[in-house]
């Protein structure tokens, strides 16, 4: 076997080895390549294989982002969704941290109310989406409320766990050095709960995004939901994909911000 084509083999090895080794050392670059390849397949399929009434190639979507933003009402709808996410996130953080602390600080409260919180968190909230809209109307209020109801539970649960799961030796040692109750709360319990709070914020952000966007899509007479229904009915895949992509980008950016914050404030845990 070694005799057959020794030259051909070494030639291939010589040209391919450095590139292959470079990719082996940079998995991120390979990931980029995979994404590019998927986009290319999408581009090819959309141009030559699939019905252009239902799907557009990514290049066309990208080039037509301008016309998407020129569509009257779209920038406003996107801005409103962003506003709802921001307000919903802030409310979920405040309510979640408040209740989480209250439940976490007392063993009895934790025992009593944690099962109820977990029960409520486990309920399929999508089923009550229509109630939110009936109660709060089709405007921003119902979307914010639905976002808060999705986002506050993970924050609550994380904060309560962060307060509860503190290593007892840290409390004991603070006590041995003469720390008062307030000092233990401020210097031991709060800082210990900070990383859990940020973990909760990350999960909460996912929840708020889900809640707000679910409600936005559900209400088809205003906001994002109006445009997704409009583009779907008019068979405008280009603008629909563009709008969805914009929202996905917003979601990715917001997720990334809270993830960075979590890494930053959780450094000491490593």
């Amino acid at each position: 076997m070694a005799v057959t084509h020794p030259h051909a083999r070494t030639a291939i090895v010589r040209t391919e080895a450095p590139l292959k080794r470079w990719f082996l050392r940079h998995p991120g670059a390979m990931r980029g390549l995979v994404i590019a390849l998927l986009l290319l397949i999408w581009e090819f399929a959309a141009r030559f294989l699939l019905d252009s009434d239902f799907i557009s190639p990514p290049s066309v979507v990208l080039m037509s982002l301008g016309t998407l933003f020129a569509t009257p009402g779209v920038p406003k709808a996107l801005g409103l969704a962003l506003y709802e996410i921001a307000i919903g996130f802030a409310l979920a953080a405040v309510i979640g941290a408040g209740i989480g602390l209250a439940v976490g600080l007392s063993r009895f409260a934790h025992r009593s109310f944690m099962p109820i919180i977990l029960l409520l968190y486990g309920l399929p909230q999508v089923t009550i989406l229509p109630i939110f809209v009936l109660l709060f109307g089709i405007g921003a209020a119902s979307k914010i409320a639905f976002g808060v109801s999705h986002g506050m539970f993970p924050i609550m649960i994380s904060v309560a766990a962060g307060v509860q799961k503190i290593n007892p030796v840290l409390r004991t040692s603070a006590r041995s050095m003469g720390a008062s109750r307030a000092q233990i709360l401020y210097h031991v319990i709060f800082p210990h709960a900070v990383p859990s709070f940020f973990t909760g914020l990350r999960l909460g952000m996912t929840g708020v995004l889900l809640g707000v966007l679910l409600a936005e899509l559900y209400v088809s007479t205003a906001g994002i939901g109006f445009f997704t229904s409009l583009f779907t009915q008019n068979l405008e895949p280009t603008r629909l994909i563009g709008l969805v992509a914009m929202l996905a980008v917003i979601a990715v950016v917001l997720n990334e911000i809270v993830r960075r914050a979590e890494l930053h404030y959780g450094r000491w845990r490593a």
Binding site: L170, T172, S173, R175, M177, G178, H187, P191
Partner: peptide
């Protein structure tokens, strides 16, 4: 109770506050 002015303690596992 704890007498921080008379007694200091060193624990088995690290009782340093990891965030400080």
């Amino acid at each position: 109770g704890p007498m921080p002015h008379d007694i200091a303690y060193v624990f088995q596992e690290s009782a340093l506050f990891p965030w400080n």
